[in-house]
Computed example of a mutant assay.
Amino acid sequence: MKSKLLMYFQRMKGGKKHHPKRSFSKVIWSWLGAFIGIYSISIVNKIIDTNHTDALFLLGSFGASAVLIYAAPQAEFSQPRNFLGGHILSTIVGITIYKFLPFDIPTLSAIAVSLSIVVMYLTNTLHPPGGATALVAIVGSPQTHKLGYLFVITPVLLDSIILLIIGLIINNISGNPKRHYPSYWF
């Protein structure tokens, strides 16, 4: 028993070294993509009159996506299949949970996020910010709840397409052959 407990805690030590600093060029391209992407979806959400609170929640979720798409464009979580599928499927999960289960917000939130993880795993679309998008469908404003499944189209799909297009443009402008996007579509 003591040896298993010791092994358990030794696993928490880590052991690998952190990655070296990124090149200045990579930092600038990542910054540019994130700036243009988040600014663009902020403007679009303002134009389509997304509720201010919902827009802030969504920006948190899409801000995390921006880190993946622009700073780690080769990561599995960043690929279009994962990015689009993760946000869309998780939003559908969140809306469905909110509409059909009669629990309080903390319970609905836990169910929506955990079930969105299951759905993303089963569909091979794991995108961590998708869990946050499922949460927005639960804790969003009455305007979000009134939209129902239209919330999937606008603002979620619309914002996703904007970030994807900017990701395609910015990540492929660089002359660096290692910086391209995507690695695969589906």
Rank of each mutant, 00 (worst) to 15 (best):
Leu56His: 03
Gln74Lys: 14
Leu59Val: 02
Gln79Pro: 03
Phe35Pro: 00
Gly60Cys: 10
Ile28Met: 15
Phe62Glu: 03
Ser42Ile: 02
Asp54Glu: 08
Ser78Gly: 10
Ile36His: 01
Leu58Pro: 00
Asn51Met: 06
Asn45Ile: 10
Gln74Met: 11
Thr50Pro: 04
Phe77Leu: 13
Ile28His: 11
Tyr39Trp: 14
Val27Phe: 15
Val44Cys: 06
Ser30Ala: 15
Ala64Thr: 04
Ala64Glu: 01
Val44Pro: 05
Gln74Thr: 13
Phe35Asn: 02
Ala66Cys: 11
Ser30Phe: 00
Trp29Val: 14
Lys46Arg: 13
Ile41Gln: 03
Ala71Arg: 10
Lys46Phe: 03
Ile47Cys: 04
Val44Ala: 07
Ala75His: 13
Ser78Trp: 06
Thr53Tyr: 14
Thr53Phe: 15
Ile41Ala: 02
Gly33Ser: 07
Ile41Val: 10
Tyr39Ile: 15
Phe62Ala: 01
Asp49Glu: 14
Gly63Asn: 05
Leu59Pro: 01
Trp31Pro: 09
Ile48Gln: 04
Ile47His: 04
Ile47Thr: 06
Leu68Gln: 07
Thr53Ala: 13
Tyr70Pro: 08
Asn45Thr: 13
Pro73Ser: 10
Gly60Ala: 11
Phe57Cys: 07
Ser61Gln: 05
Phe35Met: 07
Lys46Cys: 03
Pro73Ala: 10
Asn45Gly: 15
Ala71Thr: 09
Ala66Phe: 00
Asp54Gln: 01
Ala66His: 03
Pro73Thr: 08
Gln79Tyr: 07
Ser78Cys: 10
Ser78Leu: 09
Val44Phe: 06
Ala64Leu: 10
Ile38His: 01
Glu76Lys: 13
Asn51Ser: 09
Ile48Pro: 01
Ala72Tyr: 15
Phe62Gln: 00
Ile47Ser: 05
His52Thr: 13
Leu56Tyr: 00
Ala72Asp: 12
Gln79Asn: 11
Leu59His: 01
Gln79Arg: 09
Asn51Tyr: 05
Val44Asn: 00
